[in-house]
Deep mutational scan, measured.
Amino acid sequence: SASLEDVKTAVLGLLVILQTKLYTLPASHATRVYEMLVSHIQLHYKHSYTLPIASSIRLQAFDFLLLLRADSLHRLGLPNKDGVVRFSPYCVCDYMEPERGSEKKTSGPLSPPTGPPGPAPAGPAVRLGSVPYSLLFRVLLQCLKQESDWKVLKLVLGRLPESLRYKVLIFTSPCSVDQLCSALCSMLSGPKTLERLRGAPEGF
């Protein structure tokens, strides 16, 4: 439990870093931090981490990651405290083949985003970082199938509809809506759902 406290501190630090690096160059920093966060949550489900502190780590990670939004130009952003989304000039939600690297070039400044813009690109060529939603999407499927803490599952179920409104997140990387529907149906009809959940409301 003591070591998990250190892990929790590290994860919180990564969330803060991602919130900053999403809007700064090099964009590969945001890509790497995002991948680290998603990989860490995957390990929770792989090794069945069920301690309360592990659940709190997942809760905080999902609470942040499910706020990711994308505009029509595929640029990622996060809402501010007033709910207004600021889109990044440097990070996009497109999935890119590994051989192309985590970044790609664009020939010049991008068109203005639909929300308040981030800082304008400084040079004639900007390297865009790929932060594909499919990585998070796979972890969300694991959550629906394996999550043991009701608070975490409730958060994910509550945030998913709003995330799905931003269709560009889903359609720019390999996210299977069929698998999502299947996971939701299995969660509702499967007898093991109630068996594994802690803290579920009576009558769920």
Rank of each mutant, 00 (worst) to 15 (best):
Q19A: 07
P52N: 07
Q19M: 05
C91A: 08
T114Q: 15
M187V: 07
L22C: 05
G77I: 03
K81P: 10
G83A: 06
V7F: 01
A125R: 15
T114W: 14
S186F: 07
L37M: 06
D94Y: 05
H44G: 01
K81F: 09
C91P: 02
R196A: 06
S72D: 08
L197P: 02
H44C: 00
E99T: 13
Y90V: 08
G83Y: 04
S107G: 13
G77W: 03
Y49F: 08
F204K: 03
G158I: 07
E202G: 08
T50N: 13
K8I: 04
P79T: 06
P117Q: 10
A30Y: 03
L51M: 09
P113C: 13
V38A: 07
H74R: 06
S148L: 07
Y23L: 06
P89T: 12
L197T: 03
S56C: 11
K21E: 01
E147V: 00
L160Y: 01
C185Q: 05
D82W: 09
K104N: 11
I41G: 00
P132F: 02
D149I: 02
K151H: 15
Y133A: 04
L197I: 12
A27C: 10
K81T: 12
F87M: 06
Y166K: 04
L73T: 13
S134D: 06
T106L: 13
L141S: 03
Y90F: 15
G115H: 12
E147I: 00
Y45Q: 01
T193D: 06
A70D: 02
C181R: 01
S182E: 13
L22I: 09
R165E: 06
V7L: 03
E35Y: 11
P191Q: 15
S88H: 01
S1Q: 10
L18C: 04
L157F: 03
D178C: 05
L197Q: 03
C181Y: 04
R138H: 13
S72W: 10
L67M: 11
F204N: 03
L15F: 13
L194S: 07
F87S: 05
C181I: 06
L110N: 10
S134C: 13
L164Y: 00
R86T: 08
T172K: 04
S39E: 12
F171M: 12
P112Q: 15
E162S: 08
S134R: 04
L180N: 00
Q146M: 14
V84T: 11
L135P: 12
L15I: 15
L12E: 15
V177E: 01
P201W: 05
I41Y: 00
L157P: 00
L14H: 01
L12N: 15
L197K: 02
A54H: 04
Q42G: 09
G108I: 13
L110Y: 13
R58P: 00
P89Y: 05
K104R: 14
H74D: 03
V152K: 01
W150A: 02
Q179E: 14
L194Q: 08
S148H: 13
R86H: 07
W150F: 05
I17C: 06
H29Q: 09
W150V: 04
V168W: 05
C91M: 12
C185G: 04
H47W: 08
L18N: 01
K21R: 07
P174F: 04
I53S: 03
L51I: 07
L128T: 11
Y34H: 03
K81S: 14
L68S: 04
E35G: 09
A30D: 01
K145M: 13
E103L: 15
R75A: 04
M36W: 02
L14P: 01
T172V: 02
S102A: 10
L110C: 15
Q19G: 07
G203Y: 06
K167C: 05
S3P: 06
L194C: 10
P132H: 06
K21Q: 06
L4H: 09
A183F: 04
R138S: 14
L14M: 08
G101I: 13
R127E: 15
L14I: 06
T193H: 08
I41N: 00
R86N: 07
V156A: 03
E202L: 09
E97F: 10
G108P: 11
L194F: 12
L169W: 05
T24G: 07
S39C: 11
Y166D: 08
R196Y: 05
Y133Q: 03
Q142G: 07
R127G: 14
A125S: 15
K21C: 04
S55L: 06
V84Q: 13
G101A: 14
R138N: 12
S134Y: 10
G77R: 02
F171L: 15
D82H: 10
P201D: 10
A27R: 04
A30V: 09
L73V: 09
G118Y: 15
Q19V: 03
P109S: 13
Y166N: 13
S107F: 13
E103V: 10
S3G: 14
Y95Q: 11
A10R: 00
L155P: 03
L184T: 04
S186Y: 08
E5L: 08
K192V: 14
H44Y: 00
A2F: 08
K104L: 12
G101C: 14
V7A: 04
R58K: 02
R75K: 06
L76W: 06
A125Q: 15
R165I: 05
G199H: 14
V152L: 02
S173Y: 03
R69I: 02
L12T: 15
D6C: 07
P109D: 13
L22G: 02
L68V: 08
L51F: 04
K104Y: 13
L188R: 02
K167T: 05
A120T: 15
C185I: 12
A10D: 01
L22Y: 02
L14F: 02
E35K: 13
Q42A: 15
R198A: 13
T9M: 06
E195M: 07
F171H: 10
A200W: 06
I170A: 05
L180E: 01
E162P: 02
S39F: 08
Y45K: 01
P174S: 08
K105A: 15
R32T: 05
P26Y: 04
F87L: 04
P191V: 11
S102R: 13
P201T: 09
R58M: 01
S130D: 04
T114Y: 13
A27M: 07
E5W: 05
L4S: 08
I170S: 04
I170D: 03
A10Q: 00
S176C: 06
P113L: 15
S48K: 10
H44N: 01
A2G: 10
D6T: 02
E35I: 07
G199I: 06
R138W: 05
R196S: 07
K167L: 03
L155Y: 06
S56D: 14
T9I: 08
V92G: 06
E162K: 07
P174V: 05
C143F: 01
S163H: 07
Y49Q: 02
L4W: 05
Q42F: 10
M187W: 04
T172C: 06
K154S: 10
V156H: 00
V85G: 05
K192R: 09
A10N: 00
D6Y: 06
Y34F: 14
K192P: 06
V16Y: 08
P89M: 06
F204V: 10
M36H: 03
S55R: 08
Y34S: 02
H29D: 08
R127H: 14
V177Y: 04
S130P: 06
V152W: 00
L197D: 02
